[in-house]
Amino acid sequence: MHAFVFPGQGTQFPGMGKKLYGTSKLAQEYFDGANDILGFSITDVMFEGSAKDLKQTKFSQPAIFLHSYILAKDLGTKFNPDMVAGHSLGELSALAAIDALDFESALKLISKRASAMQKVCEVENTGMAVVIGLYDVIVKNICNQVDGVVVPANYNALRQVVISGEKKAIKEACEKLKPGAVSVVNLPVSGAFHSPYMEPIVEEFKAAVDETQFKTPRCPIYQNVAGRPSTDVDLIKKNLIDQLTHPVMWRHTILHMIEDGATEFTEIGPGNLLRGLVRQIDKKVKTNGVS
């Protein structure tokens, strides 16, 4: 069985999508349409903007979605998933790719999500860091020992956990984690995603989700909150909302997909982070990517 996975924030890079725009008429139509829907030129930011520009949540989320969605649609009949998953923001890219959301609705919802998150980022001095080489329970215990708010946000692979919170608390946690870790690195994101800092925007995002028309997806989606498959629209919407303040259970998601028969994983979108994580989780499965 063939699984397709879609990356999230942090995978953006300057110039993303520019080559695709120049080689695909379909891509041109979607990119130009996105500029009209958003009311500003996201293509200018993607094609000509700096890494600092793209780090801003209000730009990075729609940019990554566009890159991923257009690549999926440009594949035509080669995009034939038996199941899908997306890492954080990538969950919305996956839903649009399997026709649970139309292009305009997905882009508008992502823009609202990104704008709400950006507001929190501008108010709070927060961030995220990845810890490699320590087990989940150790990272969680260290976070609990730190003054201030810092929590595990992404359980990416065995002994790879992303922590999220206020920068002062992250710095303290990182100092405590470094002696036992292989590496501890700050991530190129502008906020404490999947943490209690996202609580103030839950109702705002819930309203946006409720206003958006969802359809039954054409294959199961394995969602971040529990890593289990669903085609039920109400559950999908609930999980999207809960995802804001809950950790991304990525390792659990991939293990459940493999348990359910996935033997090949294709990453669609910028970078190669997810296929690397899949290989760490299970070296026996086949991985590739379209970027």
Rank of each mutant, 00 (worst) to 15 (best):
Y21W: 11
A51C: 00
D36I: 14
L54H: 08
S24V: 09
D53A: 00
N35A: 12
M16Q: 05
F47D: 06
D36M: 12
F31N: 05
Q56W: 00
G22C: 02
S50R: 06
S41T: 11
L20Q: 12
M16I: 01
M16F: 00
Y30D: 04
T43P: 02
S41P: 09
S50Y: 11
E48R: 08
N35S: 13
D32V: 09
N35H: 01
A27Q: 10
F40V: 12
K25L: 07
M16E: 07
I42F: 09
P14L: 00
F31I: 11
Q28R: 15
L20K: 08
K18D: 04
G39L: 11
I42E: 06
I42C: 12
F47I: 06
Y21K: 01
E48F: 12
P14A: 05
K25T: 13
Q56T: 02
K25W: 00
P14I: 01
E29V: 07
D53R: 01
T43V: 13
K52C: 01
I42Q: 11
Q28H: 03
Y30L: 12
K52Y: 04
F40P: 07
T43L: 08
L38V: 02
L26V: 09
N35D: 15
K25Q: 13
D53G: 02
F13D: 02
A51T: 06
A34Q: 06
D32F: 03
I42Y: 10
N35L: 03
G49A: 09
T11I: 06
D44H: 10
E48P: 01
G39P: 10
Q56D: 13
Q28N: 05
A51P: 00
A34E: 06
Q56A: 12
Y30F: 15
K18V: 03
S50G: 03
S50T: 15
G15D: 10
I37C: 08
T23R: 08
K55E: 15
D32T: 13
M46T: 02
L26K: 14
A34F: 07
K55D: 12
K52R: 13
F13S: 15
F40N: 04
K19A: 13
K25I: 07
S41Y: 01
D44E: 15
D53Q: 02
K18R: 14
V45G: 04
K18L: 11
E48T: 08
K25E: 14
L54M: 05
G33W: 08
L20P: 02
A27E: 09
F31R: 01
S41K: 14
T57Q: 08
D32E: 14
T43S: 14
K18M: 08
T11M: 04
Q28M: 13
V45N: 04
F13N: 14
G22H: 09
A27M: 03
L20E: 14
G17E: 11
G39E: 10
S50W: 06
P14D: 06
L54D: 08
T23Y: 00
L54K: 03
I42P: 09
F13V: 04
Q28E: 12
D36V: 14
